[in-house]
């Protein structure tokens, strides 16, 4: 039996609407559930206190410090590489066999699961280069992991800069590099920052690649060669080893709020920069 088009439309749209609603509800549920269970545990002592008894009691200050430092190290390494790559691909070369290979490499790197990054970081940085579980090993591993994101968003942003700006710059006697520095990069900045923030967000939430490279020491790091534990790792250990459900929820709440803030900041920054440009 054939369903008349009008009814099939109502049926299809209804089903798809329900699917969309379900998706949104799941998001809301995850956030509300974690915040509801976790926020009661969060107070100043929890945020700025040192953990006691493996995290069963006390605060999560070392994990917060680790969560701030590790992405910073990763960005400091990945940003020059990624933006430099994007500038090269967009400004300094035409589409050749070489750029196709480079792009293919970036695409492949983007698809590698984080556990493989963890394995690689462990065997290469931790074991072979004898750096041990530390901030630098973890930062380098994460840098490789977020590199494709930064390359892609930066290249897209650079290509979106109107060609007329480049022509004007050249016609006023600028070299290509001067044009990149003075015209292209400033105008591509919102896009580049977005890519970097996406990378930060991924680093903050990452566990598998971090736990095997940065370790999980619950101390404040003094140097790049000290092990750190991020909030995501701390949460995982508390939850997985059944150390403290209460503190696990608390850590998860802080983690989710941080990630929401990072995302909001990304949007805010993009809008402010876009507004400033047309002012």
């Amino acid at each position: 039996m054939r369903i008349p088009p009008r009814y099939s439309q109502i049926l299809a749209v209804g089903l798809m609407g329900a699917a969309t609603l379900l998706t949104l509800l799941v998001l809301v549920f995850v956030v509300v559930f974690v915040l509801g269970k976790g926020l009661p545990a969060v107070n100043l002592q929890f945020l700025f206190g040192m953990p006691r008894d493996m995290g069963r009691a006390g605060g999560i200050l070392p994990a917060i410090v680790g969560t701030v430092l590790l992405p910073l190290v990763a960005i400091a390494i990945a940003m020059p590489l990624g933006v430099g790559t994007a500038v090269y691909l967009a400004e300094y070369t035409r589409e050749t066999r070489l750029t196709k290979v480079l792009r293919f490499g970036t695409d492949c790197l983007a698809g590698i699961p984080s556990i493989i990054f963890g394995l690689f970081g462990f065997i290469f940085f931790v074991v072979m280069l004898k750096m041990g579980w530390c901030l630098l090993s973890g930062g380098l591993t994460l840098a490789i992991m977020i590199l494709p994101t930064i390359i892609r968003t930066s290249e897209e942003a650079i290509r979106a800069v109107p060609n007329a700006y480049r022509e004007v710059s050249f016609s006023l006697g600028a070299t290509r590099w001067e044009t990149v520095l003075k015209v292209v990069l400033p105008n591509a900045l919102p896009g580049i920052v977005t890519g970097v923030m996406l990378g930060v967000g991924r680093s903050v939430g990452e566990t598998a690649a971090v736990i095997f490279t940065a370790g999980s020491a619950l101390r404040l790091p003094a140097t790049m060669f000290d092990s750190v534990r991020t909030m995501a790792v701390h949460f995982y250990i508390l939850a997985r080893e059944g150390i403290s459900a209460e503190n696990a929820y608390g850590t998860a709440a802080v983690l989710i709020i941080s990630i929401l803030l990072i995302n909001l900041a990304t949007y805010g920054m993009m809008h402010r920069m876009l507004a400033a440009r047309t002012k």
Binding site: A164, Y165, E167, V168, P186, R277
Partner: peptide
């Protein structure tokens, strides 16, 4: 140029 291009 034909079209005025003020840099941003």
């Amino acid at each position: 140029f034909a079209l005025p291009v003020a840099l941003p």
